[in-house]
């Protein structure tokens, strides 16, 4: 019998993986099912969910794999957004230049976080991620000539069909999720989890802890920045809300509820983003923050009963339990 870590492809063909892949097919066909304007909302929802999958995967690399618990991941999302907008609006440059600038800028701050983490670990590192996020957000609000303060920057771009954003977002989510799964199984992924599990033992087995923490943080930062640029280009506006702690919290909650440290975690968890869009759609934008309250409640329930998230739910056993609960019990 093979052990838990079987090689490559064969190991990936599991009932769960197949099931999810089959469920994704109807999503891909959304643009064909709805006619005209009716497709816009479902496509928008998918774009938002897919973007959160990518964001959550990047946080999952940093915090889930490497154990560097960040509360300021929106920083990189915002940097990507602002880099794109400033390049396009203020400097009249090609959006791709903005995208690249965002990646470089985020890599720099990722490097900075890596350097901080070599000095501060655990709780102290977490606090420093909040501090960094706050600094960047303050700059975005105060550096008016460049960022236009709380109004933010509105970008003008040629009209692009939403269907392109739709498929691009899905492609990104799939690519980054596969990248995560690949990373987890690679040498680097093993180094990351070794650091998370026991930093002293990792060191004594020759793991260069500072190097791998930095690499983890730079990878996470760069990819998160791409999402920021993407969403800014899509929505055509960037403002300090991109850097808001609420974004960071949402990223964390969907990952933890889905399953931290697992490739499927962000994929399952990000479906929760629909909840927020649903409330926004039915009750109005004013009630959208209500979603955060609901996320919080769901998070607490999961912490209590399923601390490893949705991925740890055993479908077969849950199904059997449900059947048993629903069948009338015989009198004793």
């Amino acid at each position: 019998m093979q052990n838990a870590k079987t090689e490559w492809i064969g190991d990936w063909i599991t009932p769960k993986n197949i099931l999810v892949c089959v469920l994704i097919v109807p999503v891909l066909l959304i643009p064909f099912f709805y006619k005209g304007g009716a497709a816009l909302l479902p496509m928008h929802l998918v774009i938002m969910v897919a973007s959160y999958i990518v964001l959550a995967q990047t946080w999952n690399i940093l915090s889930g794999l490497t154990g560097m618990f960040s509360l300021g991941h929106a920083t990189f999302y915002g940097l990507g957004g602002y880099a794109l907008a400033v390049a396009m609006v203020k400097l009249k440059l090609n959006p791709l230049v903005g995208l690249a600038a965002g990646i470089v800028l985020s890599a720099f701050f990722g490097l900075l976080l890596g350097a901080i983490s070599s000095r501060l670990t655990g709780f102290f590192f977490t606090i420093s991620t909040i501090a960094l996020a706050q600094v960047i957000r303050t700059i975005a609000m105060q550096w008016t000539p460049v960022t236009n303060s709380i109004t933010g920057l509105k970008i003008f771009r040629p009209i692009v069909g939403r269907v392109y954003f739709f498929y691009a977002a899905i492609a990104m989510a799939v690519a980054v999720s596969i990248f995560f799964a690949y990373l987890r199984r690679s040498r680097m992924g093993s180094m990351f989890v070794a650091i998370r599990e026991n930093i002293h033992l990792a060191r004594s087995l020759g793991v260069d802890v500072v190097k791998y923490k930095t690499v983890s943080s730079v990878i996470a930062a760069m990819i998160a920045s791409v999402v920021g640029s993407f969403i800014t280009y899509y929505i055509q506006v960037v403002d300090p809300n991109y850097l808001s702690p609420i974004i960071s919290e949402k990223i964390i909650m969907v990952t933890i509820i889905g399953g931290m440290g697992y490739a499927w975690g962000p994929i399952f968890g990000s479906v929760l983003i629909l909840l927020e869009e649903f409330i926004r759609g039915t009750l109005g934008a004013r009630y959208a923050p209500l979603a955060s309250t609901l996320y919080g409640i769901i998070l607490i329930v999961f912490m209590l009963f399923k601390p490893n998230g949705i991925v740890s739910i055993n479908l077969k056993r849950s199904f059997a339990m449900a059947i048993r609960a629903l069948t009338p019990q015989k009198e004793k």
Partner: peptide, 22 residues
């Protein structure tokens, strides 16, 4: 170590692989 140091959430194979990877 005096107080056995391990990677609690990893399996035996990966724990040893951390060493061989070096």
């Amino acid at each position: 170590f005096q107080h056995a140091q391990l990677f609690p959430q990893l399996d035996v194979l990966e724990s040893v692989m951390i060493g061989t990877y070096c």
